[in-house]
């Protein structure tokens, strides 16, 4: 597969603070990747370096085979930068149309392209509206629309759904999903459920260090099932499942939520057996997830 982002030994300091320390990773074309980590972990710094907004102190970075900020990346790389605002004197449509013209669209094409990306974000009615007249969520969606102008090959999104209502957040996830076969996304977010739905690979940053690069989850014969129950006698459930053949362990990290680790080669249809068990006992369940939740994968000890 083609590598769209390649980072090797990337470090960045701000005064005495180390924002990134020897970060190395690679993202392949078509591989939607999530970037997670606590506040101040270095996620935004990493995205700013990839966009060419910041220079890295040491290490090498290539984006689509080019140096970040290179002219060759115009139109191929796009982004939703954090805390960036549109020019308040021009309408959203005019500004998006201007960005499209800068990418080489003719005047007429640029107006059509602006309308296309606004429609993707369900903002077509706001084409003539100035940014100050839009709500926070609408401005965020307009900024995402900006990132989709000209169908770029790689889009970096810094907290795309933060501050959005659930309906619009869902719409953005759907749009990302719909175009992720043509465009590679790198998404920084605190919403693990969102990343779980969208991403094949997860990068976990902590205090500037890349702690984990999780991909192809559950690749071994040892697999996981996460079971979330409505009401249950927890001790009885644990005891029954623990006694089933092929079960390596069952752990409970939250009330009514159990993570079952099992040997897939010995018990390939554990999910069916569990459903049968729940039906027999008349136990109500909420979710049966094939695998661990992303939260469990990243943060369980």
């Amino acid at each position: 597969m083609n590598s769209v982002i390649h980072c090797q030994g990337l470090s960045k300091h701000f005064a005495n603070k180390e924002a990134l320390h020897q970060v190395s990773f690679e993202i392949n074309a078509g591989e939607t990747t999530g970037l997670v980590g606590p506040n101040g972990a270095g996620k935004t710094t990493l995205l700013r370096i990839l966009c060419g907004y910041l220079r890295s102190a040491t290490g090498s970075v290539t984006v689509l085979g080019e140096k970040p900020g290179s002219r060759a990346l115009m139109g191929k790389l796009s982004a939703l930068p954090q805390d960036s605002q549109f020019d308040p004197v021009f309408s959203i449509g005019k500004q998006l149309s201007h960005y499209a013209q800068l990418q080489g669209f003719s005047r007429r094409q640029s107006a059509n392209e602006a309308m296309r990306v606004l429609e993707l974000m369900q903002l077509q009615d706001s084409v003539n509206t100035k940014p100050d007249a839009l709500s926070h969520g609408m401005r965020k969606r307009a900024a995402i629309a900006q990132a989709l102008i000209g169908n770029p090959q790689l889009v970096l999104l810094d907290e795309p759904t933060a501050g959005l209502d659930p309906v619009n957040a869902r719409n953005i996830r759907q749009q990302i999903s719909a175009i992720s076969d043509q465009t590679t996304f790198l998404i920084s977010s605190h919403n693990l459920q969102e990343l779980e739905h969208l991403c094949q690979t997860i990068l976990l940053l902590e205090k500037g260090h890349l702690i984990q690069q999780a991909a192809d989850r559950n690749n071994n014969s040892e697999k996981y099932i996460t079971l979330r129950m409505a009401h249950v006698n927890e001790a009885e459930l644990i005891s029954i499942i623990q006694d089933m053949p092929g079960i390596n362990s069952i752990t409970q990290h939250q009330k009514n939520e159990f993570v079952i680790r099992y040997d897939h080669s010995r018990i390939p249809s554990l999910d069916q057996k569990l459903l049968k068990l729940l039906a027999e006992r008349n136990w109500q369940y909420r979710h049966l997830i094939n695998g661990q939740t992303l939260e469990e994968q990243l943060f369980s000890t």
Partner: peptide, 11 residues
């Protein structure tokens, strides 16, 4: 206001 970040993605 960060508008330059948008602009420098397109030129």
């Amino acid at each position: 206001r960060g508008t330059l970040r948008f602009l420098t993605l397109h030129c």
